[in-house]
Design a protein around this nucleic acid. Structure first.
Lengths: 192, 192
DNA sequence: TATTTACATCAACAATTGTTGATGTAAAAT
DNA sequence: ATTTTACATCAACAATTGTTGATGTAAATA
């Protein structure tokens, strides 16, 4: 699949539609209509409806991995590492809120064997966060929290953020999200 | 619709199936097959596929509202109120993890006008949490956090908990979830 | 200039979907 | 004893679905 301006537009329109209606509820005919062209023409842009979803999900998943790998490879303290992970997570979300929404809500619609690949990769990411938290506890920077629970909680705390970037009438100032969220999460973990 | 033992079983089997496959992906034929009876027989238990989803969602949504109303009507301090809300939220989740999963993932499949009712009611709940946080700030028990962001974060921190009650191979001890989560959330809010 | 490429339309398919009507039967209520 | 109720089966519907093959055209490439 090439990357032309037309294809770029196609992918964006389809993405917003899938976000709005949900993947299953969005038909190829819906996408075609939204773009004002024939149903069959959709297949000049994609191989299948499934592959379309895969494109979105694996692309943004890769970006998340790249960013956390950068942090993991650094020499910062655990506290600084966690702060950086939160920061980069929010930055990616700000840049690609719709794909992040799919990541949160539509991954179930993947089919095997790609679903398994996706889930393994997601677990990888969680394990990387876990590593940071473990290191923080070992180095006595973090309280002796339950690692499983804390990892889940940290991840979940971040998962709603895309909403404030998608919804234009959101009263939430996107700029202060990072500060507030970082404060909140670190307060729950860091030793005082 | 009556409440017989057979209907009870039907609702439970359908619920787990819908949770596992997703609402859209679960067909009436899937449900029938899982129960080992004919497709048409399903309609002796429900009016429509839609109404089935509504049954689950509004039922557990009501329970959440009842429990937070109890807390709001009490004379506790904001900190104690928040602790009670978290506690009752987790208890409901523990009792009805599959319905909680639908609440988190499948509400989009509701159709108008019921979708609007659901969303208004969900906003109501969030506003009730907001009220507690506001009160905590006013009474100087909580830090001067951003109310919108904090409410979202608190709610999101709780939304993953059903996983540990559904997944039997979860390494997470269900008993300590409440303690850890309460600690985490309060640490992010309470003034020290 | 000749040819490949990207984008577009039309018609049609096979499969899957939620739902209904007709009909039956055993148990419960009258 | 009779009638209603709860639960069950069978066959069939109309609508919607993802996808394909045949065909066209304008622009980019050779």
């Amino acid at each position: 699949m090439k990357k032309s301006a037309k294809r770029e537009r196609f992918l964006n329109v389809a993405l917003e539609l899938i976000h709005k209606k949900g993947f299953k509820a969005t038909t190829i005919r819906d996408i075609a209509q939204q773009l004002n062209f024939d149903v069959a023409n959709v297949y000049n842009y994609i191989d299948s409806k499934q592959s379309l979803l895969e494109t979105y999900l694996f692309s943004i998943q890769d970006e998340f991995h790249d960013s956390i790998d950068l942090v993991l490879g650094s020499t910062h303290t655990p506290k600084e590492k966690l702060r950086l992970v939160i920061s980069s997570y929010i930055q990616i979300t700000a840049k690609r809120p719709f794909e992040q929404a799919l990541l949160a809500n539509e991954w179930r619609n993947l089919k095997e064997p790609r679903l398994q690949v996706f889930l393994n990769r997601r677990e990888d990411y969680e394990n990387k966060v876990k590593t940071i938290i473990k290191e923080g506890i070992t180095k006595d920077e973090f309280r002796k929290v339950d690692i499983e629970i804390t990892t889940h909680t940290v991840m979940s705390s971040l998962r709603w953020v895309y909403l404030s970037y998608i919804n234009p009438q959101s009263k939430i100032n996107a700029e202060i999200i990072e500060q507030e969220l970082t404060d909140f999460i670190l307060a729950g973990i860091v030793k005082t």
